[in-house]
Amino acid sequence: MTGGLTIQYGESGMTSIIELEQLSVTFGKRPILKSLNGALGGRAIGLLGPNGAGKTSLIHTLLGFHPPTSGTARIFGQDITTDAKQVRATIGYMPERDSFIAKMSCVHFVRLMAELSGIPASHALERAHEALFFVGLGEARYRPVDSYSLGMKQLAKLAQAIVHGPKLIILDEPTNGLDPPTRSRMIALIRQIRDGGRARILLSSHLLRDVEECCDEILVLKDGQIAANCNLEEERKANRKFIELETRGGERQAFVEAVGNLGCEYALSGERRIKLIMNETVEISDLYRLALEHAVQIRRLNFKRDSLEDIFLKAMENGNAGEGVSQSVVNGDAAENANGNGRADNGSL
């Protein structure tokens, strides 16, 4: 079996994988997607929006299920209308609804999907076994898919989406109807694929937590228009400057003054908490050094940032102003954080 993909997407490799150019889709006389513009380049892109916002329609359009009424989109530089087959060859798709081929064992089902994607029969069976072991269905792979539980069916759908090693994996509500342990497993798998760097992910979900846990870029749709498009990774990096400390013992006042001398703004909250707006030149290690000098124990250090929920709700409130709004949302979040109104969230220490 051959492994490894020639194209590697590093963290800094933010080349656009999906480019939308005035993409419009109409069903009958009803506009579903309205002149979408933008470029998405994250390792994992979250597609958010309320019911009926056009998330699934956008996915279907990218897959060529719905022809664009006007405009177009490009995936890895290939046009979805003129190079539909080449585009689909690079994509793995996990549909939202139960989708399987009846009266077929899971391994044969996944093998069939691999062969339809172009993998020769001699390799397809091996790939099917690998994909099923990867998603955790190794022991149940000879059972018919019809007999699977909902969680197992979701995993089988994921297996068929990744069996041919696509460059872009589109997941439509992958955690729908899953119990907490199965959901955690699904999220872990998605993160593992994302961190592997061999494939990009487009994750559509109405569960903000799923998107927050997996994605580094989000596209929020509302009424068929882009309500927000922001890079969560950059957002998180920007919010690193806002820190909340919980301390014990030592010369607390002297410690905060020393921190202040480094150019950071600070505010004391209660007996143990200190809120800091970090100076650009100050590193976290400086805080630990000063804490040591003043015998202060740093019991907890939180990066504060806007939650995805805040971003989403703001996008919904701001309405449909396209990319202008998306930029203002990003900036607005940062401004709000600077004022210390952001929700506390545990940092990764």
Partner: peptide, 24 residues
């Protein structure tokens, strides 16, 4: 990638011809 490794790997081998794919 071996089956027991349980890793996600891309496929780089040869594909069968596009015209005959429907025969699967």
């Amino acid at each position: 990638m071996a089956v027991y490794e349980h890793l996600y790997g891309a496929y780089e081998g040869e594909s069968h011809s596009a015209w005959s794919r429907f025969l699967v």
